[in-house]
Design a protein around this nucleic acid. Structure first.
Length: 384
DNA sequence: TCTGGGGTCCTAGGACCC
DNA sequence: TCTGGGGTCCTAGGACCC
């Protein structure tokens, strides 16, 4: 999808059409998550601080993100894609790979399928989309990027080499600003440069794994299949404060809120996490993580919070100013694997949190809250 | 008004095991 | 008569993607 969040907002409010629209953080430290093409004409791009964006374009309309809405539209989008093939692999809310190799006899050539999808997305969702049609995932993604905005690009096998050779290494999946600079120091600026260099030399520059990947991608080779359902590897939540925090109680309370969020999502997905990670970003922007792997995986906020606060205490912050805290769970394991343990132990926290899930599903997210999260001046930082 | 939030993957060192 | 060679897991950091 093109400028997805901004486009959804424009579709919802026609008075925004033709105007520079920015979706993103509206607080002092917000960044642009999505910018309409009118805003991009002013040099605005996503991830830019909102304040800088507004200096470039003071007339821009700034809207906070509405992820519930984007999620709804995303589900409709994926349904449209799945009407063409069950082999749909979402890459994010607004992007997916579709393997239409098996649908040719039924639906016609892939470029015709792509054009049809664009028409349906425009008429049913009222949103612009771009499509890349190519022999593999990497090339298709590359083409969809080159097709933007609101276009379709079909790359035929015979044209791959000529098409790729002059492209910047920045278009290689996995090459960002840093790696591009690094490659440039060795005279590697285009796909052609990377394709031509021998792999052992490339490995000395970017490491073994990256060398293999970049070498193949630069030649247009990508053997990855389209896989509809990859289980999540981790779940996390983090919060950047409007102003830096040096009060340990505030940090602990924020971690409790984040633990609730992560715990709920673990339970909703039916998984438990064995490794808990604390993330702290200091005012200096230096970022550290500390993690601990548990003997028994958990999906409970109380336990996530306890581990995170222990890791926090071990940092011995001494009122250092903190800009962000985050909490994550990785090493995910399907829940229920250790149900016997629940029978043997007194699982009151687990029952309590599952009951709260049910209440929140029925009565809304605000239905159940921890006492410790209600009054900033109350409590000792412990749960409830 | 300097730098969000949710992810994935890779590297590298150390512990530990056979 | 001072120390091999895997393999796996854990931890911390960093690059990158949307």
């Amino acid at each position: 999808m093109d400028a997805f969040y901004a486009a959804v907002e424009v579709q919802r409010d026609a008075s925004l059409a033709g105007r520079p629209v920015l979706v993103g953080g509206t607080g002092g430290r917000g960044v642009v998550a999505s910018a309409s093409y009118e805003a991009r004409a002013h040099g605005i791009s996503s991830a830019m601080p909102m304040a800088s964006a507004l200096r470039r374009c003071p007339d821009a309309v700034v809207l906070p993100p509405d992820f519930e809405r984007y999620g709804q539209v995303s589900r409709q989008l994926m349904e449209i894609l799945r009407s063409v093939t069950p082999l749909v692999e979402p890459l994010s809310l607004d992007e997916a790979f579709c393997d239409v190799g098996g649908s040719v006899r039924l639906l016609g050539p892939p470029e015709k399928v792509g054009a049809g999808l664009r028409r349906r997305i425009a008429s049913e969702l009222g949103l612009p989309a771009s499509v890349g049609v190519a022999p593999n995932k990497f090339l298709a993604k590359l083409c969809s990027g080159k097709a933007k905005p609101d276009g379709l690009l079909h790359l035929r096998v015979d044209d791959v080499e000529d098409f790729l050779a002059p492209l910047s290494v920045r278009d290689l999946w996995g090459v960002g600003a840093q790696t591009a600079d690094h490659l440039a120091r060795f005279g590697l600026r285009t796909f052609g440069d990377v394709a031509a260099i021998d792999r052992a030399t490339l490995a000395r520059i970017v490491g073994q794994a990256a060398a293999t990947q970049l070498s193949e991608l630069a030649r247009g080779e990508d053997r990855r299949g389209v896989t509809p359902h990859e289980p999540a590897k981790g779940m996390s939540a983090e919060e950047t404060f409007d102003t830096d925090v040096d009060d340990p109680e505030v940090l602990r309370r924020e971690l409790l809120r984040l633990a609730e969020k992560v715990g709920r999502r673990l339970r909703a997905s039916g998984v438990t996490g064995r490794t808990v990670t604390l993330k702290v970003r200091y005012a200096s922007f230096q970022t550290v993580t500390r993690s601990r792997t548990l003997a028994v995986p958990t999906d409970q906020a109380t336990e996530l919070h306890r581990e995170a606060t222990e890791l926090l205490d071990a940092l011995r912050l001494e009122r250092v100013r903190v800009r962000l805290v985050g909490l994550g769970a990785t090493n995910l394991i399907p829940a229920g694997g250790s149900r016997q343990l629940d029978l043997l132990t007194d699982d009151r926290w687990g029952r309590l949190e599952r009951a709260a899930d049910v209440a929140r599903t029925r009565f809304g997210d605000e239905a159940v809250t921890r006492g410790a999260l209600l009054d900033p001046d109350a409590d000792d930082g412990g749960p409830f």
